[in-house]
Nucleic acid binder design. Structure first.
Lengths: 104, 104
DNA sequence: GCAACGCGCAACTTTTTAGTTGCGTTTTCG
DNA sequence: CGAAAACGCAACTAAAAAGTTGCGCGTTGC
């Protein structure tokens, strides 16, 4: 993740998170296909996909007149690892605090 | 996570993510302490902490005249697990696709 | 007791975001 | 060729988010 906050921000919209979930189940989808499954316009879907792509959560490729999108697994795993590091750091802080209290 | 998108949304702001990182290093902090480390007002910090608390990423407790905050590790781990599930699902979809292409 | 500290509430401004509609371009296909 | 499909660009609206300032209230401590 270049910018962890940007990744979480992209995942922080209910519609975009649903899009990610949708893409996790099917191989790859066009903008039109996706917007058919959501109660928003094609342009709104296009904007969401652009946000996800800019956050590297998704990749796109043009095939004739349509643009197909698929998940970029690596970015999900990077975000996962980031949360793991924060949790571990916090766990370490708790541990050091306990030791400090012991030595009092 | 009651609402995964809400958790990611809370983590999706650069300032809030920095607050989380800050809280991961120290045991627990008051609003005043935290706002001293950030270029925003105490009220802005208070709002951010409220957002993090509503997303269950953080817990607060009152001690005299100050309110102290600490990380809620469980929520970080839930978010982490969520990303893991999505990634696994996507991995599975890729596998099924590969098998389908083989059987053609 | 009273001054200073830490905080919450309310009102406000500014920027961002999610969504829309309309129009033009490229590609497909009968 | 010509209609329809899939998309991008631009302008716009409405709502939410990030931030500020001002004021009041409980707590601390000299």
């Amino acid at each position: 993740m270049a910018d962890p906050a940007a990744t979480f921000s992209a995942l922080g919209d209910p519609t975009r998170l649903a899009i990610v979930d949708r893409l996790a189940h099917s191989a790859d989808c066009s903008i039109h296909e996706l917007s058919a499954d959501f109660p928003i316009s094609r342009q709104a879907m296009s904007k969401h996909l652009r946000v996800l792509e800019q956050a590297r959560i998704v990749r796109s490729g043009r095939f004739g007149r349509e643009v197909r999108f698929r998940l970029e697994q690596a970015e999900l795993e990077r975000a996962q690892a980031f949360l793991g590091r924060v949790a571990a750091q916090w766990q370490g802080a708790l541990h050091r605090l306990a030791k400090h209290l012991d030595s009092d």
